[in-house]
Amino acid sequence: MRKLLFESLIRLPLTEPPPAPEQRELDALAAALGERARRRLGRSLAIREVDAGSCNGCELEIHALNNAFYDLERYGLRFVASPRHADVLLVTGPVTKNMREALERTWQATPDPKWLVAAGDCAVDGGCFAGSYAVEGGVAAVLPVDLTIPGCPPRPVEILRGLLALVAPLPAREATRGATS
């Protein structure tokens, strides 16, 4: 009984219906990112997520990247527990004044070379919290942002697409980083 149960549980992802367009897009992303990431980052990109005042909606969709539908790790992307292990900080929220220092210190703790992605409308420009006494109004008001992913919250597939874009224009990126760090 137990064995049967395990078997059927383990088989579940395999019994998925044929891939929808979204699924094919994901596969395409997997292929493209796999190649570029291999070139630049030894096939892996370690991401540290920082909530800098999010409503937690963005976190839900970032979490979803780990589920069996998106399975982030097959692209060589993975979330790490410490900024010291990270290549990328993925930041959400309008950067509340109360979180500013913690965000800055997390960024300082991330070793070079490093990239910063602002995910969600709030992180892009403060979103609907812009203008409040309690927020800085987006990540760029505090730290140099390499890439923004709009949406409230962005869909998991959009976040994935964004992370792909991050590793795409390499020569240009190197130049800007040199100037800012």
Binding site: D51, T96, G131, V135, C152
Partner: peptide, 24 residues
């Protein structure tokens, strides 16, 4: 740490904008 000042942002706005804030 994630205080965004939602109630201040709501004050003086119309229902549509306040509803949007409430949903966030």
């Amino acid at each position: 740490y994630v205080h965004r000042g939602v109630e201040s942002l709501m004050a003086g706005t119309d229902l549509a904008r306040a509803a949007q804030l409430a949903g966030r």
